[in-house]
Design a binder for these strands. Structure first.
Lengths: 350, 350
DNA sequence: GGGCAGCATGAGAACGTTAACATTCTCGAC
DNA sequence: GTCGAGAATGTTAACGTTCTCATGCTGCCC
């Protein structure tokens, strides 16, 4: 009955221009082959005669055929889609990571579905993962700045491939920048210029990235037996850099400040400027991230550059490794950042 | 044969813990109902006895059931997924728009699949649209800064719902900030402070947003019969702001500069500073966008704020309207930006 | 010349869901 | 007590792919 209706619909009108779009069967009919042969052409199966293949391709062009991915996914159980759990995607770092992952995913033949979370509590993250699972993603990349995210990730359904980017956790394969190394570079740079010690305005305490930068900074100070001032708590924002900068500016012994990111450094620069402390003559400032604007700060900011594109690529590698069922080697990839010297740092005036 | 195998597999093991995950039939069996009843529970069909519903829900919980969206999409022809064509997503504006759209989409019950394009030529954009179509998205939101994108969009398959965000074109429903109004606000602000005229460092010539800002600036000057200096070509980057700023700094008659975005303003601020021209005492600078850092520039930047979240929400409204087949009224939505006065602008010194 | 490998193709059954229709059951009205 | 409306549930057929297996057909070897 229904089949009759379809035929009745098709044959009089000539079928090509239906709202529904054409399907494999239409292509097959036009090319005079079975739908299976069309499928073979579509999937580059070797056993198709060149002539037949050509006929099928012509029919596909004529009907403007597009394969239906839902049907394909249903039968292959592969959605070719990755889920991305992201937070604060308006910031440069996460936005760049997202971009890097998307590019890498495309290259690898995957689609990317984004689930931004408003907050990083376990519940929001689990809900985001849930939504992505419902979309039957094959794996999830989570930009995991906070420990809670990692915790939530490890609660993800068993079969699901998962990779964390940025922050760290033992429970989930992770790729991240070696924040400690970057912080140490920045600190050593300042020490090498002759500063007696280096102050540090940190990121939020519960972000592993912030913690690692603190560790790197502290280690570098330890290594040369420099005094370790109390770290100044920031929250990645320029505002926090400004507030902490004002406090630091009142202390004449402060000659070098390492900021956990470039925004903080920007705030600190303004605070120092307002307090009449000249950079770099009186105080040196170093940031972290190398946002595109940092070379136009006043003065241009010495900082540490992260390669976000590489971060995206590597995280995808790790994910695909899991999807292929490869052994869980290299569960943790760490990328070394690059030091970028500009003019916000110099030898102490004394 | 195959059916036998499945039964043989299922019954001995008890089925709940299979790699494949459970499907509707498993739930139905456990709850002692037909799969259709499960479907009804899932889709909130009214005609299910509360007691039955409860039993089904319990079974779903017990089996950790998740509906298979591919199958659902296949039969309903609705993927509940929107495609997002985006460019330069690492910049604050696009990143914020992306975020706004994602949030709005989630609220409306849609998933978002992102296709970033490396460049905005017609080919890249069409390819991105193609990829999204293959994923059977129901509609596409394109962050359409350049005219070529709009052109490519209008080439999209006929049945596809499309909305452009940001830039404009007549051929596609669009939601954008009223850039001309914003630019006029900035310009009028400077004129009201007593400046004889206002110089302008523009965005790239082929971006409608940049063009609209030029128009708004020029109109505001015309309105008070102020002289209209030649616009200085920029490209959104701090670098271009710096370069144009250096040129402007050499001209002592320049007392007010309106920059097409905050990055350009940052570069201009640095150039003016290096040239020894004090802001705002000698030269006033105004930006556009209100990036989070702009209140920590030196000096804090007077600028024009865009509401990206609203932009995302409205573009989604427009898209959903199309999906519902509503009339094509309001094909163009324009949002008025907000003027934000800070300290980078003031009366001319003379 | 019979058997057989292997290529090219086709037929039909999945995949897991929703939609359309069919069936039972429950009540109240006549 | 029968009828019928409507609620609750079940049956079956799509949806558009890919997969498995079957079937010709060709050409080659012994």
């Amino acid at each position: 009955m229904t089949a009759d209706r379809i035929d009745a619909d098709d044959q009089p009108t000539g079928a090509p221009q239906r709202t529904r779009g054409s399907v494999m069967r239409d292509v097959a009919r036009l090319a005079g082959v079975s739908h299976q042969t069309v499928s073979r052409v579509l999937n580059d199966h070797p056993n198709v005669r060149p002539e037949t293949r050509e006929r099928v391709l012509a029919a596909m062009r004529a009907l403007n055929y597009r394969r239906n991915s839902a049907a394909r996914t249903l039968v292959t159980r592969r959605s070719r889609t990755l889920g991305l759990v992201a937070f604060e995607t308006t910031l440069f770092g996460p936005a760049s990571t997202l971009y890097g992952i998307e590019q890498a995913a495309r290259t690898a033949g995957y689609f990317v579905s984004v689930a931004s979370v408003r907050s990083l509590d376990r519940e929001s993250v689990l809900e985001a993962i849930d939504r992505l699972c419902e979309q039957s993603v094959e794996g999830i990349v989570a930009i995991t700045p906070k420990n809670t995210v990692v915790a939530a990730l490890s609660q993800a359904p068993a079969g699901l491939a998962v990779v964390g980017v940025g922050g760290g956790g033992e429970s989930v394969p992770t790729v991240c920048i070696d924040n400690a190394a970057g912080a140490a570079m920045a600190t050593r740079h300042l020490l090498a210029l002759g500063h007696a010690t280096v102050h540090h305005i940190t990121g939020p305490a519960d972000w592993p990235e912030a913690q690692d930068r603190i560790d790197g900074w502290r280690e570098a100070l330890y290594a040369v037996a420099a005094p370790v001032p109390a770290p100044r708590p920031g929250d990645w924002s320029a505002r926090s850099g400004y507030e902490q900068g004002r406090l630091l500016a009142t202390d004449p012994s402060v000659t070098a400040v390492f900021c956990a990111n470039d925004q903080i450094a920007l705030g600190a620069l303004r605070a120092l400027h307002e307090a009449g402390r000249r950079v770099p003559d009186e105080v040196s400032v170093v940031g972290f991230d190398d946002v595109p604007e940092s070379s136009y700060f006043l003065p241009p900011l010495t900082t540490v550059r992260q390669d976000f594109a590489e971060l995206g690529r590597r995280s995808l590698d790790l994910l695909i490794e899991q999807l292929n069922g490869d052994s869980r080697t290299n569960r943790r990839i760490s990328l070394t950042p690059t030091f970028v010297a500009r003019t916000s740092s110099g030898p102490p005036s004394a």
